[in-house]
Design a protein around this nucleic acid. Structure first.
Lengths: 152, 152
DNA sequence: CTTGACTTTAGACCATGGTCCAAGGATTAT
DNA sequence: ATAATCCTTGGACCATGGTCTAAAGTCAAG
């Protein structure tokens, strides 16, 4: 049998039937053919489409972005340049997220290093750093974060 | 005046009044005193508490985690060890997220590098990598991703 | 006294990515 | 034939972190 019911499709692609219907509602899967009893019938191809979605998701693309990628993938007029540019935008996006997390990580490591871990929390430098108005600002601020060495 | 209405509090802390009420509903702020007209009245202290929340958020803590941090901060029995351990868990969490993003980044950079950017998208290696069943699996898979060099 | 700014509440709504449920019809296995 | 699955639909619900609205009450300035 070369056509799949939703359950077979979902099992083959490793998602739930709910997810398949959700993707259809979201425009990631086209409305499929139906049996006389109104059951959805999918070609084998759709398994690949679902796996494509899974892969793209694993690569950090949102469902909205995946919808665009699928459009590029199926539009004969689309170009490699478009796909590449799309990917490069995502690369920039992910680099930015990594940079943000690395800044946060450095601050947390700094704070954890400043805490000896002994005694009551009321003078814990970690809490103090979040508490105080200006100490720690340079680590926490973000974009224009230049850290003056605590001079007075 | 040492007590603040919600608007003054929000302005002083750099959040919206909606956010202040939302934090109260969420248990991040205790229910404040009220005027006879049922207006919320906050001590100056609450400005600091809100700023603490902002800082902790900037450090990647979720509101649930911040609720726990606030509990540690205000419980005289809590210890530095607890706060430090909490922070170290978050550090591990963030390291993991960075590692995930770096893996994704490497794959995307690899794919972008494999695409010359010329011609129609139908044989674009980026799309192909998401499309194919096994090619690219090692880059996309995750935890146990060891990349066999395309051997047969 | 009136206007405008502030506050109150409950509840809806946003995006993200689904998951779960109920009530009913279809199909398959025994 | 009948029970166990499977499928259909619409809609509610989950977490996250808020934002917005409406209708009503309150407060400060002119």
């Amino acid at each position: 049998m070369n056509l799949l019911t939703i359950g077979k499709l979902a099992a083959a692609a490793g998602v739930s039937t709910d997810t398949v219907r959700f993707y259809e509602r979201s425009g990631l899967l086209p409305p499929p053919a139906r049996t006389e009893a109104n059951y959805r019938l999918y070609p084998q191809q759709t398994v690949k489409r679902l796996k494509f979605i899974r892969r793209a998701k694993a690569l950090g693309f949102t469902l909205n972005e995946i919808r665009e990628l699928l459009a590029l993938r199926h539009d004969p007029d689309s170009t490699k340049a478009e796909v590449k540019s799309f990917t490069e935008n995502k690369i920039e996006d992910i680099r930015q997220r990594i940079a943000d997390l690395q800044r946060i990580l450095a601050t947390l490591e700094h704070l954890a290093g400043a805490c000896d871990g002994h005694g009551p929390a009321d003078d814990c430098p970690i809490l103090a750093a979040m508490d105080d108005d200006l100490r720690g600002e340079c680590q926490l601020a973000g974009h224009h974060a230049r850290c003056r060495p605590a001079g007075g």
